[in-house]
Design a protein around this nucleic acid. Structure first.
Lengths: 226, 226
DNA sequence: AACGATAGTGTGATAGTTACACTATGTCAA
DNA sequence: TTGACATAGTGTAACTATCACACTATCGTT
């Protein structure tokens, strides 16, 4: 018994995990990536990717590592969301989960089921399967946060590629806010923020006039705006 | 040895604490409550109130309990801020800290040093002593968050009493934003939010014309506005 | 009764937001 | 090659919100 449980403490310690809500837009639908659990508890249920924090890694590194291990995905934008710690979240033992949300452009992603995942799949946010643990709550909070940050930060740029057309960007805003936006007003607004730079390339969707491509003037961190 | 460390796990577990940044306005200065540590590590240093999470209590309850135990303070507004988890935050072992910030009106508070605290004192945010652990970072983030939330929520009401004059409320905004505001514009704005209710009482500061007292129309949760 | 202190009140200028419709340029099919 | 389709790209006027600004009212104090 002691051989199987060699990590001993004077006081009880909880287990610590990270969970990742990876948002993307696929076929004009806001979606997240879920894995089907290979292990107990909730074996066979859909759940957020995530897992236990190693003792020598920081929380953010853990989130990135788990996402990579379970889904093969790397290089996404990541931000801490909230820490969930109710006593009976997990039937095995006390587990604290630090939730992160991640954003990426769909065509830059190629998820592959990894070690702890029997399967990996995208789900539209309004068509989620039954979820393990309290992951439904986690996802709902993430969606709220994403919507709120649209208005005062540059999060939206995390959901498009490195270069993008204003039409693509407008679609991101429309889908997350759930309402149509006026094209001229949107362009005026977004250009006035001063965070975009023109490129001299254009992109055609194959059916119509090609659109000018833009990129972030200062790529990297999400900025607060206004 | 095993007798001193009876809580054993198959994998290593971190310790889990909460820390609380309790803001108040005292003598027109934004201040927080610190305790002087009675125990190692950082014995004798100033630190945020906080402590280890019990295995059967949720994170928020822990924060409230620790605040009560160490400072005697109860009944404050509390909100999760961020979770700090770098591997070497604490020299003893891996410690994850879920930080909460709290708000209260100064005259409703009477801090008293409790069990783990040798001393409890208010410090102006721009005149903090050297702090234990990474608490200086925690406080800085809390201050940023407080300032940001002023503009899109009703947090400011957490720093005044149950009833308050518009002059008092304006002072809260001015101090947190660090700039003077126009009285007429402030009143127009705050009343237009529709979150205030008049009372028919007034309050005099003893030196001048008494001011009408207001209260929150829907006390309780901090609301998002605009 | 005069003074000091804070409460309380409105208006005009400016800036930001909204509503709204047509031309331009590409692809595709006949 | 030309016409139909799809999306890109563009300006203006009405409306709304924000900002700057100064005086009167009412209390306590001397």
């Amino acid at each position: 018994m002691a051989d199987m449980s060699p990590y001993c403490y004077e006081y009880p310690h909880p287990a610590l995990t990270t969970d990742i809500i990876l948002f993307t837009l696929r076929h004009d639908v806001l979606s997240i990536l879920l894995i089907r659990r290979r292990a107990q508890p909730f074996q066979g249920s859909w759940a957020l990717p995530g897992g236990f924090v190693d003792m020598d890694e920081c929380l953010e590194d853990c989130a990135l590592r788990e996402l990579a291990e379970e889904t093969g995905i790397t290089g996404v934008y990541l931000e801490q969301l909230y820490t969930f710690g109710k006593p009976n979240r997990d039937p095995r033992e006390r587990v604290i989960s630090v939730a992160y949300y991640a954003l990426a452009a769909y065509d830059q992603l190629a998820p592959v089921a990894g070690s702890d995942a029997a399967e990996v799949a995208w789900f539209a946010l309004d068509d989620l399967p039954p979820l393990a643990f309290d992951h439904a709550d986690v996802i709902q909070l993430a969606q709220q946060r994403l919507r709120a940050k649209l208005d005062y930060s540059t999060v939206a740029f995390g959901l498009v590629g490195e270069t993008f057309t204003l039409g693509e960007l407008q679609k991101v805003y429309e889908i997350i806010r759930g309402e149509a936006l006026d094209k001229r007003n949107f362009r005026k607004h977004i250009l006035s923020l001063g965070v975009l730079a023109e490129t001299d390339a254009t992109r055609s969707n194959g059916k119509s006039r090609p659109a000018k491509l833009y990129r972030l003037a200062h790529p990297g961190a999400v900025q607060y705006i206004k």
